[in-house]
């Protein structure tokens, strides 16, 4: 059963990676990152249950992934707002372009 959960996590991570690599818009890139963190949560929960249920480390890893997701979202949106306000773009390719 652990293998099945890890396969699910691997599939979610791959889908998220595809999105994060291929999308141009900052918000869509963030959605890819969220899917990858989702995969981390599933994997951490499954590994906790099957290999080390006596310690809470697996559960804490799920919480850490959730926290990372929230911070990533809040900061991602804040930076996007700041860039958008200054430059009127929300596309990663243009944000890397340093000329104003």
């Amino acid at each position: 059963m652990l293998e099945a959960f890890l396969l699910l996590a691997a599939a979610l991570l791959a889908v998220g990676l595809y999105g994060a690599l291929s999308q141009q818009s900052v918000v869509m890139v963030m959605m890819g990152l969220e899917l990858m963190l989702n995969a981390v949560m599933v994997a951490a929960a499954a590994v906790w249950f099957h290999t080390s249920p006596h310690s809470a480390d697996g559960q804490l890893l799920v919480l850490a992934a959730m926290l990372a997701m929230a911070v990533e979202m809040a900061m991602g949106f804040a930076v996007t707002i700041a860039i958008f306000r200054a430059r009127d773009v929300d596309v990663t390719d243009s944000a890397g372009d340093l000329r104003g």
Binding site: L67, A70, V71, M73, A74, F77, A78
Partner: peptide, 17 residues
């Protein structure tokens, strides 16, 4: 009210603990 959403996302993570 976009600034409220950022504050909310950060503050509600506290409920996790």
């Amino acid at each position: 009210w976009y600034a409220v959403t950022l504050l909310f996302i950060a503050f509600d993570m506290e409920m996790v603990f």
